[in-house]
Amino acid sequence: MTLMTMIVKMSEGLGKTCAIFFLTLIFSLPLGMIVALLRMSKVRVVSAITRFFITVLRGTPLMLQLLAVTYGPYYLFGASVARNKLIPVVIAFSINYAAYFAEIYRGGIESISIGQYEAAEVLGYSKLQTFMRIILPQVVKRIMPSVTNEVVTLVKDTSMAFTVSYQEMFTIGKQIANSQTSFVPFLVAGVFYYVFNVVVDYVMGRVEKRLDYYK
């Protein structure tokens, strides 16, 4: 198999790699905010339960979580394994990343001084207005570097979908590597991920720059 054929075959999986990446971001970024707010809930039980789930999601391998979400229903209830693996893969990734984003959001929210809330309160801002207009924009700016870190990691983590044989780029590469007894597909995969992350870095850099108008 020529290098060109390998590249073409693996590119066919890029769409699925991108699907995991974008769908995970679309679901986990907002979900993380909900988790963060639950984590900071004044109701002790709510915050304790949320905290427990976060520690589980951060404290166990993503690979294990992928397997659990994909095959768990079969072993537990005898349900058939999803025909389209994208669904369990995106669920597992979204929940896992939401846990990480939640902790980043929480750190950001807690770093805003209480005086900002008080100033808004005295001026008659409602709780929602205070959060959406005063707190959140400042949080977003502060957490951008940490979020970029997670997004870069996510690009590489999509390769873990191979554990449930979802036909994304790395899974295809691994299959070629096995059948051809060649290391080249892994090098190709490495280049793909690197280029992907160069783009991610550029985009996130632009976003950070746009938030640079104040300190």
Partner: peptide, 8 residues
């Protein structure tokens, strides 16, 4: 005391 302007 410390203004608490909205920095953004």
């Amino acid at each position: 005391q410390n203004f608490q302007l909205f920095p953004h």
